[in-house]
């Protein structure tokens, strides 16, 4: 299961709207405990696929190294990634699957139709190797932010 708070959930969806008609992408930092990828923060990343940004994304490894370092300093791990599908369903594609290598991590996809975020789905990359990996539908729990009480 993927757990994230409202603020992170909306930030991911807003990112996809901002970059429309191009794909957005980013990294989910948090903790993986007992089968739950618990997201603390979503870090925006640049899409290096400027040649085909409407239907491809790629995060520069150097940026990933930096984000992983930031996470380590905060006691957080990379537990997933997100990207958008402009005018395309929130389902993983053959390209998403072929390029997915972070076993145990959540891959979140938001469909953005005519600039407006629609469905947001998550897929857990299961398996133990490249040869037996698979995407599984993953439940998404959006926790309401606790408000301060007077």
């Amino acid at each position: 299961m993927l757990r994230l708070n409202e603020q992170v959930y909306h930030a991911i969806r807003r990112h996809g709207e901002e970059t429309y008609p191009h794909e957005c992408c980013g990294v989910l930092l948090g903790r993986s405990v007992d089968g739950v990828n618990d997201v603390e923060d979503a870090i925006r990343a640049g899409n290096t696929r400027t040649d085909s940004a409407h239907n491809r994304y790629n995060i520069a490894p150097q940026e990933l190294v930096r984000i992983q370092r930031q996470g380590r300093e905060r006691g957080l791990d990379i537990v997933g990634f997100y990207h958008s599908h402009p005018d395309h369903p929130a389902q993983w594609s053959k390209t998403d699957f072929a390029e997915a290598h972070w076993l145990g991590c959540s891959y979140v996809i938001t469909a953005v139709e005519k600039g407006v975020a629609q469905a947001t789905n998550s897929f857990l990359l299961t398996g133990t190797t490249e040869e037996d990996k698979a995407f599984e539908d993953e439940a998404v729990e959006v926790a309401a932010l606790e408000t301060e009480r007077c």
Binding site: E23, C25, V27, R49, S52, N55, R56, Y57, N58, I59, P61, L64, V65, Q68, R69, F81, H83, H85, P86, H88, P89, W92, S93, T95, D96, F97, A98, E99, A100, H101, W102, Y107
Partner: peptide, 11 residues
């Protein structure tokens, strides 16, 4: 040293 699998995809 940092080991970093790549991350990419698209619709």
């Amino acid at each position: 040293l940092s080991i970093i699998p790549s991350i990419a995809g698209g619709c």
